[in-house]
Simulated scan of single mutants.
Amino acid sequence: MKKVLVVLAALGAFSGLVQAQEKIQVLSTQELVNVCKLPASPESRSFCVGYATSVYDTYLVTRHPQRAKPFICVKQPAPQRDVVIGDFVKWAGENQQFADKPAAGVFLGFLADRFPCGKK
């Protein structure tokens, strides 16, 4: 029994090592732009809206208001999602230096540029 546990532990450690060495692919800004360009198929539009919404929602729920000042301030009524996504596609086309960067961070940067917080 003890040998079996040692073998299982060794396999688990090896498996963890292999997984740790895998490169996790993240969506690039250009890949997101390609999916979000109009006219989009229903599947592409759904992915684009879902991705953009989840990035913004994650920003909202993970920012601690006492420790981190907001850097994205969307005034209400908020613009339609398709308008914001269209603006992002245009912005990304004008800022090709971000094409190979991870889409989530670049999208947050775009939102901060598009919806800056004013000084209080």
Results as ranks from 00 to 15, higher is better:
29 T>E: 04
8 L>Y: 04
16 G>C: 13
90 K>H: 14
98 F>T: 03
5 L>T: 02
42 P>I: 03
36 C>R: 07
34 N>E: 14
63 R>S: 00
39 P>M: 04
52 A>S: 14
62 T>N: 00
6 V>G: 04
70 P>F: 00
14 F>T: 10
42 P>Y: 00
51 Y>N: 06
46 S>T: 13
86 G>H: 15
8 L>C: 10
7 V>K: 15
106 V>F: 07
40 A>L: 10
91 W>K: 13
23 K>C: 05
110 F>H: 01
111 L>H: 01
96 Q>S: 12
42 P>D: 09
10 A>F: 11
114 R>P: 08
53 T>E: 03
76 Q>H: 06
84 V>R: 01
29 T>G: 05
49 V>F: 10
111 L>N: 01
116 P>K: 03
103 A>G: 10
47 F>E: 09
97 Q>I: 07
111 L>C: 03
11 L>D: 12
7 V>D: 15
115 F>R: 03
47 F>R: 13
2 K>A: 06
98 F>W: 13
43 E>S: 12
99 A>T: 09
114 R>H: 11
95 N>R: 14
80 Q>S: 12
18 V>C: 11
120 K>C: 04
2 K>Q: 06
47 F>G: 08
5 L>I: 04
90 K>L: 14
91 W>D: 02
75 K>F: 01
21 Q>K: 13
80 Q>E: 14
88 F>H: 13
94 E>I: 09
27 L>D: 02
107 F>L: 10
70 P>G: 00
102 P>Y: 01
81 R>N: 10
13 A>R: 10
115 F>S: 05
29 T>C: 07
9 A>Y: 02
67 R>L: 02
55 V>T: 05
83 V>Q: 15
78 A>T: 03
